[in-house]
Simulated assay, not measured.
Amino acid sequence: MATWFVTGASRGIGAEIARAALARGNDVVVAVRNPERVPDDLKKSARVYAVPLDVTDNNSIPAAVDAAVERFGGIDVLVNNAGRGLLGALEEVTDAEARSLFDLNVFGLINVTRAVLPGMRKQGAGKLVHLGSRSGFEGEPGVSLYSASKFAVAGISEALSVELAPFGIQSMVVEPGVFRTDFLDSSSLSVAAHRMTEYDGTPAHVTLDWIDEANHAQLGDPVKGAALIVEAASAAKLPTHLYVGRDTLERLDVKYQQVQADLAPWREKSAATAHDDAA
Rank of each mutant, 00 (worst) to 15 (best):
T273G: 11
R37F: 10
P239H: 08
E16D: 11
N105T: 00
Q257M: 09
A272V: 01
G126M: 04
L22M: 07
T202I: 02
E70R: 15
E175Q: 15
T202E: 06
L109F: 05
A15G: 09
P118S: 12
P176M: 03
V29L: 00
A89I: 02
S133E: 04
A279R: 14
D247W: 05
I17H: 11
T202A: 01
V191H: 13
S161Q: 08
A264H: 00
S171C: 01
F72R: 01
I156F: 15
G132W: 03
L184F: 11
P35Q: 00
E213W: 11
G245A: 04
S10C: 05
F179E: 04
I13Q: 08
D103H: 04
A236G: 02
T207N: 12
A67F: 05
S187I: 05
P203F: 07
P35F: 02
R47V: 02
V173G: 07
K127C: 00
A148E: 02
W266L: 14
K122R: 14
V178C: 14
L90N: 01
G220K: 09
E36L: 00
G85R: 03
R11C: 02
S161Y: 03
F151T: 03
L42Y: 03
G25T: 08
G132P: 04
D262V: 10
A152R: 02
K122E: 14
P52E: 12
A96V: 14
S157K: 06
N105C: 01
L22R: 13
S171N: 02
A46E: 13
A50V: 02
V254Q: 15
